[in-house]
Design a protein around this nucleic acid. Structure first.
Lengths: 210, 210
DNA sequence: AAAAAACGTTGATTTAGATCAACATTTTTT
DNA sequence: AAAAAATGTTGATCTAAATCAACGTTTTTT
């Protein structure tokens, strides 16, 4: 593990966070990151802390950052006319948070992302992404791996959303992302699954009777 | 436009179909395909005709092909316990049909894909994909463009699936893919949107009264 | 320590859309 | 040309889940 940063420009928390990012990237690519890759990553990713309830991005903005979650928990959602949050994604440690479509294409995002727990992120700006990160040799493989995975997951979620009962959706989530259950309260899980907290409560009290 | 194939091994329909594929790929990448790319594409993509109702892939198989639709219309669906088709994707001209997860990872596919109209496809096998296509310089950019687009679309579909009324879903589809309405009967559109043909029928008779 | 906010449960009622059924029309197959 | 299959509509009924509401418990804030 890297103990200090070669340039000496970063504090030790930043170094530790970069170590976690490196492990994550290495797990997604075939050839390990080189020292020069790592050195560049250290420069382009800066730390950002978010307190609970703070926004990472807000609807209407162009998303100008991509963020890797080192610690904490966040949610991505829209707000409908009646003011209701519709949660689309949940992020915990080792997930990437952001609106990739807005980030890549430059269209305004329809989403809010905020911290559900106090969080520590590694953030890269669009400029550094375009000029540096996207040109590194590992980037294409990393991006492909993440995008493909995302797309497979979304296909499954769409399928369950359209064909499963509330109980089946809940079961599937418990099997697929059991972490989410310990981490988020039921009304957030409910919104993520497109149902209400009351429905979750009723399913749980029924299934415990069986 | 290419009129004949250099090698002379392919008939003129194959050449015309490859021309369409080339146009499609060129529209997704920055540097146009080279003559040598085109020549390799001609070799690895072979034509396949499907008659209406014929399967391209069936649930339980490993998907060993990727197919580009030159002509026709297909649907991808699961079949649930009660025998009901749940349609996940519709494909017409210039779409790619297949189960990418099964194709890439080698897991059995849960999907059926069959022809809704007589169709003409350009098909590549997994072997040719791995040994040839995936190594061509344009592939990574093409794949990234297609996968990202797919993932953006799926996010939007998931969002509408969870938050829109049947009428809003129908509206959105008419705006996003108006072609699908002319091409597929209402019970197929209904299944694709996760509703019933009766619901579509009722929405249409209501909105025509307004 | 008190107040406020967040969380979770249970009951009563409503509702969007599914299901079931019958039928008319159009298209395809033989 | 006749039969069969596919498509689309309308009505009656049902149902899973939403909504509305009240309340207890836990956690957070002051």
């Amino acid at each position: 593990m890297r103990q200090t940063d070669i340039s000496g420009n970063f504090n030790s928390r930043h170094s530790k966070m970069i170590d976690i990012l490196i492990q994550h990237i290495n797990s997604k690519i075939n050839n390990k990151l080189t020292e020069s890759d790592i050195s560049l990553l250290s420069e382009v990713f800066h730390t950002k802390k978010l307190r609970k309830h703070q926004y990472l991005i807000q609807s209407g903005e162009v998303c100008k950052i991509a963020a890797f979650v080192v610690k904490g928990a966040l949610k991505k959602y829209t707000i409908d006319n009646s003011g209701k949050e519709n949660i689309l994604e949940l992020y915990i440690e080792n997930w990437w948070a952001g609106d990739k479509e807005s980030f890549m294409i430059g269209t305004p995002t329809p989403y809010y992302i905020d911290a559900y727990e106090d969080s520590e992120l590694l953030v890269i700006t669009k400029d550094d992404f375009v000029n540096i990160l996207s040109k590194l040799s590992f980037y294409s493989e990393l991006n492909q791996s993440l995008t493909e995975r995302q797309s497979f997951q979304l296909m499954k979620r769409l399928h369950s959303s359209q064909t499963f009962t509330a109980e089946q959706k809940l079961d599937e989530l418990q099997n697929t992302y059991p972490e989410f259950f310990q981490r988020f309260p039921k009304h957030i899980i409910a919104s993520y699954l497109g149902m209400t907290k009351e429905t979750i409560s009723r399913i749980r009290s029924n299934s415990s009777k069986k």
